[in-house]
Design a protein around this nucleic acid. Structure first.
Lengths: 210, 210
DNA sequence: ACACCGACCGAGCGATCGCTCGGTCAGGGA
DNA sequence: TCCCTGACCGAGCGATCGCTCGGTCGGTGT
């Protein structure tokens, strides 16, 4: 599939959609992420971000032109990463809607555990985005939602799923998976594999998988 | 002051848990609610709330001592209302966990449609609450969650539900219902009764109701 | 040797924040 | 009549906001 990839700065481009490498955020982005998670976008000051990044305020502005640009950097990066992984998860499943549903849901779940903070900020800070950023984010989010919806509908059409409400079921499944970023903790009682096992079963039940 | 707020938005005790009276919020609370929904707590200024309420800034402070008190008034009122309705919905169902589950879920769904804005603010503005308010809110939210969890577990114990993961199923069901407040619109394509019909079926499927 | 450049910062800009001081004014009880 | 009370507001407080000006400094190319 990807033949000539070479390792680059310790990161391999051709990794499986199931695995998410360590996040390599710049110091300002990492600091902004931690602040936004704790206080929200409007509740965070540029001075606090700079302090957390080990920079002065002008030093921070040397790398990013505005507070909004920090939010944009976090949100856009993580949404493209999600879509990239989900597309590969769907492609790997081939034509069977049941298998595709399983792969997409597993991908959504693993993403919202491995990229918990960024996913949390993206989904809760929509009101903090300027119109341009918000529009771009919503377009990506809708594209992600459509992949789930199409798979559920196709599964119902082909008799793999039994739910009488495919549209609502698709939204419910996405909601469940996105919410993982608001309660999952690496030191919690469920491991990532267990979360996938449990929630994949729940999502299958929700769409009436036979 | 806050005790008065609770009564202000309260409904007559004799009406059914299924019906929610028209919201009776004071002008400042109604203005704060609209602002918080649109811009979030930290993104809203006291001047904007006052303007929307048809008051000057000191006029606003004559009725509420702080911006935080407005948030507290909105969140506490609506959570007490939810718990009150849910308790009556559960009591009416008697001893059968299947019926109790149906009633609680229907109550959750109707609440998140009729009190959409307040429920949305309560669930998305936790980071804007001062520690005291946050603690009180979370205690009420956990109590609500426990009613769902206990019912699911009892349903599994008594053979009414088949899910192997009652705890996760309870969280998933609550998540689905709470999320209604973030997409439901009175002029949308689904009426409240249709939303109840669809999502009750999805929630039953999620817990594996037989 | 020296010009240049990216990385960074002390100080502070104008705007706006939550909140308050010191009132005005209509209506009601004695 | 007279003053009390609750409802309200013009003006503005000190603090803090996002952001910028005018630099310093160490490394690099020539």
């Amino acid at each position: 599939m990807l033949a000539t990839d070479h390792e680059e700065a310790g990161n391999t481009v051709s990794e499986s959609w199931r695995s998410f490498g360590e996040q390599r955020l710049s110091a300002p982005l990492a600091a902004a992420l931690a602040c936004f998670v704790e206080q929200g976008y409007h509740g965070t000051t540029i001075r606090r971000i700079a302090e957390r990044a080990g920079l002065s305020v002008p030093g921070l502005y040397h790398h990013y032109p505005s507070k909004q640009a920090l939010l944009e950097g976090l949100v856009m990066t993580v949404m493209h990463e999600l879509l990239d992984h989900t597309r590969r998860a769907a492609a790997e499943a081939g034509d069977d809607p049941g298998r595709r549903f399983d792969n997409i849901v597993e991908c959504l779940l693993r993403f919202h555990m491995h990229r918990r903070d960024q996913a949390f900020v993206a989904s809760t800070e929509i009101r903090g985005m300027d119109p341009g950023v918000r529009g771009a984010y919503i377009a990506l989010r809708d594209e992600q939602q459509r992949m789930v919806d199409d798979t559920v509908r196709e599964g119902v059409d082909r008799g793999a799923f039994a739910t009488p409400y495919p549209r609502d079921a698709g939204r419910a499944v996405t909601t469940m998976c996105v919410a993982v970023s608001s309660w999952y903790r690496p030191d919690g009682e469920l491991s990532p594999d267990e979360v996938v096992e449990h929630y994949l079963a729940l999502c299958r039940a929700t769409v009436g998988a036979r």
